[in-house]
Simulated scan of single mutants.
Amino acid sequence: MHRSRQTAPALLLCALAALAGCAAAVRPPAVAQAQAAAGALQLESRSKHSGGKGGEEKLNLRPIIGIVSQLGDPAPKGHSYIASSYVKLVESAGARAVPILCDMSKEEVERRFKAVNGILIPGGAQDLRPGQPFFDTVQQLVDLTIEANDNGNYFPLHGVCLGMEALSVAVSRNHSILSDYDSENLPSPLFLTDIAASGRSRFFSALPPQVVEHLQTRPYAMENHAHGLAWTAVEENPRMKEFFDVLSLSVDRVGKVYVSTMEAKKYPISATQWHPEKNAFEWTPDKDIPHHPDAIEVTQEVANFFVSEARRNFHAPASQDEEEDLLIYNWAPSYTGKHKYKGEEVDFVESYFFPLAPEFKRQLAAKRQARQAQRAPAAAAAAEE
């Protein structure tokens, strides 16, 4: 293990800031210069949207993230849920969310996969064995992600806590690869491996140096899990060792070491055992969630990393009507933070609840018809004009 305080990048940033300050001091604040700069920024924005000039990378400026729902608390019987903190996480970086229900048919899961630009597998508590709805949906999404990337279609996927555990089972093809850990409600620092500390990981290299330093030196990684992945489990499973690079380790209350961050070697697939979304968006007094401004920056920068990855993908709904049908805005979140639910997941301020897939489809059709009925008078008036 190697811990790096990222001092060299910090010094370099200071030097660049000083240089910029000197340049500003000798440059007159001319209106013409300001207008030229504004024009250049507008040209850059148009260039990125239209495919780029001079070798600039084309970006998708309307990214959509698919988020997997799960059964159980706090959802009522006959429903699945998504904690709204995951929706807010992607929205905070300029993306929108589409629910992918864990009990949807394979055909519907694939249809939604082809309409979104990245997949977020959230934390929670689910049965990670083949034949279980949540795991089977995750396995399908992992397989679709790998297939898309193998075909040259850049498509990112990120797992949080349960999401990382599900990824581990899906890739290893071993549902007993996880171990027990005493890390519930245990905000912790991260111990970076040499791969991450030396700047060879996409995930940590994308975060600002001060965020990486804070994650190593302060308890800003919100750990809240009873299961996890041992370092030895990666080393001893050929599929895992070939697929993933371990980026950080953490320690539970009794001194057991587990993998806390990892990413795929060849694919834009990443995972954190810790919860970046909680720092900014969950407020239960029952958990020791870090809310320091520097911890909030962790949330923001992890969101920026993931959504920036999604901007490199160009999946899209078939039409504006389909986009409106897919988005999570069709469903209202419930204020679950004011209640005490029995079960493991009691710390969500807000949650989205979805009926099981057949009823979900029926309700969505009713919402579509209501939207069309609202548009009808305006369309008729426009036709008369």
Rank of each mutant, 00 (worst) to 15 (best):
Asp325Ser: 14
Thr145Ala: 08
His315Met: 03
Leu190Val: 07
Pro358Arg: 09
Ile195His: 08
Arg239Asn: 14
Val116Ile: 13
Val346Ser: 14
Asp294Leu: 15
Leu326Phe: 13
Ala303Tyr: 12
Tyr335Asn: 13
Thr193Arg: 02
Ala383Pro: 00
Gly199Lys: 06
Asp136Arg: 00
Ser176Asn: 15
Glu282Tyr: 07
Lys340Val: 14
Leu11Val: 12
Thr137Asp: 00
Arg239Gly: 00
Pro28Arg: 03
Val307Lys: 02
Asn153Trp: 02
Leu249Gly: 03
Ala383Ser: 13
Tyr154Ser: 00
Pro219Leu: 11
Lys241Tyr: 04
Gly94Cys: 10
Arg96Gln: 14
Ile269Glu: 05
Asn149His: 09
Leu192Tyr: 14
Leu101Asp: 00
Ser198Tyr: 03
Glu277Arg: 01
Glu277Asn: 09
Arg112Phe: 01
Pro276Asp: 04
Gln300Cys: 11
Phe305Lys: 02
Gly343Asn: 09
Gln210Ala: 12
Leu19Ser: 12
Met164Pro: 02
Glu263Trp: 03
Gly94Thr: 11
Tyr341Trp: 11
Ala365Gln: 14
Glu242Tyr: 10
Ala376Asp: 10
Lys58Tyr: 03
Val138Phe: 01
Leu144Phe: 01
Trp283Lys: 10
Ala166Cys: 06
Arg129Thr: 12
Trp231Pro: 09
Met164Tyr: 08
Pro74Glu: 10
Leu41Ala: 15
Val251Trp: 07
Gln132Cys: 15
Asp103Cys: 13
Leu120Phe: 06
Asn153Met: 09
Leu229Arg: 04
Val298Cys: 06
Val302Ala: 05
His339Ser: 10
Ala376Pro: 08
Cys14Gln: 11
Arg129Gln: 13
Lys287Phe: 14
Leu43Glu: 15
Val109Asn: 04
Ala8Phe: 15
Glu324His: 08
Glu184Asn: 13
Gln126Pro: 00
Phe360Asp: 05
Glu91Trp: 06
Asn153Ser: 05
Ala17Trp: 09
Ile121Thr: 11
Val98Arg: 03
Ser250Asp: 06
Leu192Met: 13
His158Asp: 01
Gln369Tyr: 07
Pro187Lys: 06
Val251Met: 12
Asp347Lys: 10
Glu236Ala: 04
Lys342Asn: 12
Gly21Ser: 13
Ala264Thr: 02
Pro219Arg: 08
Phe134Pro: 05
Val302His: 09
Phe203His: 08
Glu165Leu: 07
Ala264Trp: 00
Ala226Gly: 15
Ser50Thr: 11
Gly124Trp: 00
Ala38Gly: 05
Arg112Gly: 02
Met104Lys: 02
Lys256Trp: 01
Ile100Met: 06
Asn149Ile: 09
Asp143Thr: 14
Lys77Val: 15
His275Asn: 07
Asn117His: 05
Leu12Val: 10
Lys106Phe: 03
Gln273Tyr: 02
Ala25Asp: 12
Ser105Pro: 10
Pro29Gln: 06
Phe314Thr: 11
Ala280Tyr: 04
Ala148Arg: 03
Gln369Asn: 08
Lys241Asp: 07
His49Ile: 14
Asn313Gly: 05
Asp180Thr: 14
Arg375Gly: 12
Thr232Asn: 13
Ala40Lys: 14
Pro355Lys: 04
Phe243Gly: 00
Leu19Val: 11
Ala97Gly: 07
Ala366Gln: 15
Gln369Val: 03
Phe354Ser: 07
Ala318Ser: 12
Ala10Phe: 12
Lys342Ala: 09
Arg129Glu: 03
Pro76Phe: 08
Asp180Ser: 13
Ala310Asp: 00
